[in-house]
Computed example of a mutant assay.
Amino acid sequence: MSDNLYAPSQTELAIASEVQRPFYVVSRTKFLTLFLLTFGFYRLYWAYKNWQQFKQATGQEMWPIARALFAIFCTHALYREADTKIKASGRTFDW
């Protein structure tokens, strides 16, 4: 320790890198509220953010915008990926 009480700390701080989450998680209440307030357009944003974050976390080649626009065909794949991540962590979830 130094004698100067006002001197900045000389210890080196480790910078924690931001953990990349693979999915955009929102509560059911928030999702339903925003879905109703935006007349259903929030579903497109939600799907886009999920695929965008999944792409960044895994590095897979995909088009998040296309998967959001055609969410009716791609949502099952998103849920399958989420289920795989849940099972890999040793947890279970009843869909």
Results as ranks from 00 to 15, higher is better:
Met1Tyr: 05
Leu5Asn: 06
Tyr6Asn: 15
Pro8Tyr: 12
Glu12Met: 10
Ile15Ala: 06
Ser17Trp: 08
Ser17Gln: 14
Glu18His: 14
Phe23Ala: 03
Phe23Thr: 04
Phe23Asn: 00
Tyr24Arg: 12
Val25His: 05
Val26Asp: 00
Ser27Glu: 10
Lys30Ser: 05
Phe31Tyr: 15
Leu32Met: 08
Leu34His: 02
Leu34Ser: 02
Leu36Met: 08
Leu36Gly: 09
Leu36His: 06
Thr38Asn: 01
Thr38Pro: 01
Phe39Asp: 01
Phe41Gly: 03
Tyr42Pro: 01
Tyr42Gln: 02
Tyr42His: 04
Leu44Asn: 02
Leu44Gln: 05
Trp46Cys: 07
Ala47Cys: 14
Asn50Trp: 00
Trp51Met: 01
Gln52Gly: 00
Gln53Thr: 13
Gln56Thr: 10
Ala57Ile: 07
Ala57His: 03
Gly59Gln: 08
Ile65Val: 14
Ile65Leu: 15
Ala66Met: 13
Ala66Asn: 07
Arg67Pro: 05
Ala68Pro: 02
Phe70Glu: 01
Phe70Ile: 09
Ala71Thr: 12
Ala71Ile: 15
Ile72Asn: 10
Ile72Leu: 13
Ile72Cys: 11
Cys74Lys: 11
Thr75Pro: 01
Leu78Glu: 00
Glu81Gly: 02
Ala82Cys: 11
Thr84Lys: 15
Lys87Ala: 04
Lys87Gln: 06
Ser89Tyr: 07
Thr92Gly: 09
Thr92Gln: 10
